[in-house]
Design a protein around this nucleic acid. Structure first.
Lengths: 261, 261
DNA sequence: CGGCAGTTTGATGTTACTCAATTTAAGTGG
DNA sequence: CCACTTAAATTGAGTAACATCAAACTGCCG
C-alpha cells in the first residue's frame, strides 16, 4: 500500500502519532478534529470508534492522506486496517480490464471504505480519492475486540453495513430499471442529504466535486449523455451544476423524477 | 405476514413443532431433513444455526412453506424472525409502482433472506417464492444471543453479509457497464456454481426454474430481448435453456463473455 | 498567450425497447 | 386420447434511447 502525503514528495503509509499534531495544525479543522467533532450522522463509525477511548491509545489508529485522483485501496488486496474517511471525497469502484469502471458509492467524511472490512481483510472493490482526502485506519484486531466488548461499536458497524446494503439495493434498481434522467436525478437526491449532513447548506447550494465522468461511471452512462441530461435539467430550471457546486431550483420536480416509488 | 401452507387452503404462519413430524414425513427429504443435511456450502447459515443445539430447543425455530409465485416478505415491514430458505428457489426484488421490478438475488436452499436480518427487523426489498419453497425462521433475539456467545455463528453471519456484498458489487458493475449478452452470461455463470453446490450435476445440465421474465428482471432487459439473446446463445451452441434445465455446451466461451475482468 | 482538461454540440450508428402476431408448450376437462 | 385453454417463448417490423465519433468551445493555469 502506498499513500502519498499531501504536499510532500516522500511516500508515507502511516503518519506516526508524533506527526499528528503538526498535521492537525496544518490542515486545521479537518483530520482528527473533524473525525471527532463531525457528527457523521449517517454511518457514524469513525465517531463511535473515537469516542471509545480510541484516541487515548496510541498504535491502533493510523492517519494518512492522498491527493485527488490517487488510488487508495486495490481490490482483492489484504489490508490490516479498517479505513474511515476523515476529510474530502472518495469513491468505491470496480475496474474492468477494458477501461470501463462502475462507481459503486461516493464516500464522504465519516464513511467507512467498506462496512464489511471489520470481518474481511480484502475488498471486493477499489477506492480512489476524488478530492484531496485525509483518512484514518483502525487496526482490525483491535476493532474486533472492541466490537465484542462494546455494543455501541457493534451496532455502529451493523448499521453501516445495513446502510450500504440498502444503498446497493436502490442503486441496482436504478441501474436496472430506470432511464438516464431518472438515474441522474436519483444520484443527486441520494447525495444531497449526505452532503447536507456534513456541510452548512445555504440557498440550496451543495458542494459537489464530481466531474461528469464520475456521474457517468456511477449511473452507467457516457459522459456525453450525462452532459445532455444535465443541460436539459438546467434548461428546465431543475438543477444546475457548475464550479463544484450543485444548485437545486426545483426540488419537488427533481424528487418526482428521481425517487424510487 | 401471511403464508399459505402447501396444498392447504388454511392460512398458516408458524407451523408448530407438533406439526413438524407430520410435515417432514409428508414432504420427505426436504424441510428439516434438507435443512440439517444439505451442506449449504455457500452461506451455511442454516446449517451453522442448526448445529448449535438449535433443533433441541423448541420455540425459537419456526417452519413455513409457500407456493410458487407467493410473496413471502414485504419490503419495510418488520419481522421478528431471521428467515432461511430450506428448499426451493426464491428471489429478493424491489418493486416499482409502475410495475417494473428489479430482481436483486436468487435465493437457493441455505441462503438467508437477508444477511442483515440479524441486526434489522425490516428488509430493504421484498421476497417472493419462485418455486414451491420451504423456509425456516429463527427468532432474532435468540440468534443475536447465540451470535455473541458463539464465534462460529457470528462468522457465518459475517461471511453471509460479505458474500451478499460482493454479489451486489458484481451485479452493479454488470448492470451499469455491460451489454445484454455479457449480463445474461454473467447471471448464468453466477448461478451455476451455486446450483452445483446443492445438486448433483450430470452432463452439464443444471436444474433451472427461472422464466425468461425473471432473467429479464434480474439483468434489466425486456423478456423479448432476453429471448433473442438466448436464441443467439443456442444457435452458437453455447448454452440451451428449456424445460427447467440449463445445459452448458461451451463453458470457456460462456466465461469469455460473462466473466468480469 | 498557449496548452490542457472538461464540457458542449452536432451528426450518425447501435443497442435494446415496443407493439403485435405467431408458435410452442403445458395443462385441463371431456 | 384429444380438443380446448392458457402461459410462455419466438419472430418480425418499426422506434426510441443511448453510444460513438469528432469538432468546437470554455475556463483555468503556467
Amino acid at each position: 500500500m502506498q499513500l502519498q502525503l499531501l504536499g510532500s514528495g516522500r511516500k508515507h503509509y502511516v503518519i506516526q502519532r508524533t506527526q499528528r499534531a503538526r498535521l492537525t495544525n496544518h490542515y486545521e479543522n479537518t483530520f482528527a478534529s473533524i473525525c471527532v467533532t463531525c457528527p457523521h450522522r449517517e454511518t457514524g463509525l469513525c465517531g463511535t470508534l473515537l469516542e471509545s477511548e480510541a484516541c487515548s491509545q496510541p498504535g491502533w489508529q493510523h492517519f494518512a492522506a492522498a491527493r485527488a485522483g490517487e488510488q487508495i485501496v486495490v481490490r482483492n488486496q489484504p489490508y490490516d486496517d479498517v479505513f474511515v474517511l476523515c476529510a474530502g471525497w472518495a469513491f468505491r469502484y470496480f475496474q474492468l480490464s477494458d477501461g470501463r469502471r462502475q462507481i459503486l458509492k461516493f464516500l464522504l467524511p465519516g464513511d467507512a471504505f467498506s462496512s464489511a472490512a471489520v470481518f474481511e481483510k480484502s475488498f471486493p472493490f477499489s477506492v480512489k480519492a476524488l478530492t484531496e482526502v485525509q483518512l484514518s485506519g483502525f487496526v482490525r484486531s483491535e476493532i474486533r475486540a472492541r466490537c465484542a466488548a462494546n455494543p455501541d461499536i457493534q451496532s455502529a458497524v451493523a448499521s453501516s453495513c445495513i446502510a450500504d446494503f440498502r444503498d446497493a439495493t436502490e442503486l441496482l434498481t436504478s441501474l436496472g430499471q430506470r432511464s438516464a434522467e431518472e438515474r441522474i436525478a436519483h444520484l443527486l437526491l441520494h447525495l444531497m442529504p449526505r452532503i447536507a449532513a456534513r456541510n452548512v447548506i445555504r440557498e440550496q447550494r451543495y458542494p459537489f466535486p464530481l466531474r461528469q465522468q464520475h456521474i457517468a461511471d456511477a449511473v452507467g452512462l457516457t459522459p456525453v449523455h450525462v452532459s445532455r441530461v444535465l443541460s436539459l435539467f438546467r434548461d428546465r430550471r431543475l438543477v444546475a451544476l457548475s464550479e463544484g457546486t450543485l444548485t437545486v431550483f426545483n426540488l419537488p420536480e427533481l424528487e418526482r423524477i428521481g425517487t424510487l416509488r
